[in-house]
Simulated scan of single mutants.
Amino acid sequence: MGAPVEELRALLPGEPGAQREVLRDAVGWLVAHVDQPQVLAARCAELGPVVAQLGVAPQRLENLAVLFVDMLRANPPGVVVRRDQEEAWATTGRLVSRWMADGAAAGAHEPASWSATVVRHERRRADAAVVAVRTYLPYPCLPGQLAVVESSRLPGRWRRCWVGNVPAGDNVVELHVVPHRADPAGAELVERTGVGDVLRLRPAVGVPAVDPGATRPLLVVAARDAVAPVRALLGALRAAGDRRAVTVFWPAAVERDLYRLADLAPEGTVVIRDRFAAGDEDWTRHDAFAAGDPATVAGTLPRIEAAGVPADRVRTAVDGPGDA
């Protein structure tokens, strides 16, 4: 199996069983729609920009035909695939890859988008919800970045949403939404979105919370409604076995109001449920990450710099009102 096909395999969940499930779903959809070339072409064209966003060059997509035939050959023992069936699937694969390549080329003029099905919807307060969605292809997103989301009921209204996890092999993305005033897109996601609804995601925006190569202790300052990127950051550090010292300031009066951070934090993380103030602590050796609405972050930055953290070691994540 050549390197191009391995690159395509890398787009699928890493665990072999999960890969088989994704391939089975993909081929099942192709079989169900193979007699509807217009539908098939349209959906494949939508996948093209996403595949390009994930770093697969359009010319590599021609190897998709090989991937389909390879999957057919992996049938259980005793199931014989005829030569004409192999040839038919190779032809289908070449058509699919061509349509995807055309979509990838068109994507140079429009951002890629991921189709995402809601698999869980939890109201955390009357005005807050966690909307978990599953994308078909992996959604690249680092801690501190925000997803750009559209509901089918409000076409064209794209909204930035906090991401509370780092999407893993199951392709589930946790969108944490707290609507602002005059925020119909946010209200739609919290109040009227349910399991089974389909959303669209554009590429994540914003700067990652930390420099991947840094090892300095980390100071994290989050507004009360900006705990989601902190959860994503702490979960990623814990998964990576990162042992740097982390101190989190989060002014939630009662932790159960929103979420628990201790369940995700690496060992040794200190969570302080209070506003950050320069105080007597020495933060000069730390990197810093601040998250919240624009006004809160703007008010926090001078305090972080006054505490001794250089401006070039401070990163921010800002959730603004209204649409993206």
Results as ranks from 00 to 15, higher is better:
277 A>T: 14
255 E>Y: 05
258 L>K: 09
301 L>A: 07
19 Q>F: 09
29 W>V: 00
1 M>T: 06
267 E>F: 15
153 R>Y: 08
284 T>N: 02
75 N>M: 12
305 E>P: 06
173 V>L: 05
115 S>T: 12
143 P>T: 07
198 V>W: 02
232 A>I: 01
88 A>W: 15
199 L>M: 05
300 T>W: 07
141 C>S: 14
2 G>W: 04
193 T>A: 08
8 L>M: 15
279 G>T: 05
254 V>H: 15
208 P>N: 00
141 C>W: 13
204 A>S: 04
94 R>C: 07
323 D>G: 06
273 R>G: 09
173 V>R: 10
266 P>C: 14
124 R>Q: 11
163 V>C: 11
27 V>R: 06
169 G>C: 06
312 D>T: 09
220 V>I: 02
234 L>Y: 08
53 Q>H: 06
139 Y>R: 08
26 A>R: 06
110 E>K: 12
117 T>I: 11
292 G>V: 03
304 I>Y: 10
229 P>R: 00
149 V>F: 12
304 I>E: 05
81 V>W: 05
103 G>N: 05
77 P>H: 12
208 P>L: 02
49 P>C: 02
65 A>W: 01
8 L>D: 12
223 A>F: 00
79 V>D: 13
271 V>R: 11
235 G>C: 02
293 D>E: 13
159 R>M: 08
37 P>I: 00
147 A>M: 08
126 A>Q: 14
256 R>K: 13
127 D>G: 13
116 A>M: 14
217 P>S: 01
74 A>W: 01
54 L>P: 01
37 P>T: 00
178 V>H: 05
119 V>E: 10
234 L>S: 04
69 V>A: 11
311 A>H: 06
136 Y>G: 10
138 P>T: 15
107 G>P: 07
221 V>C: 03
126 A>D: 15
228 A>I: 04
60 R>Q: 14
132 A>E: 14
196 G>N: 08
124 R>D: 05
115 S>E: 04
14 G>W: 15
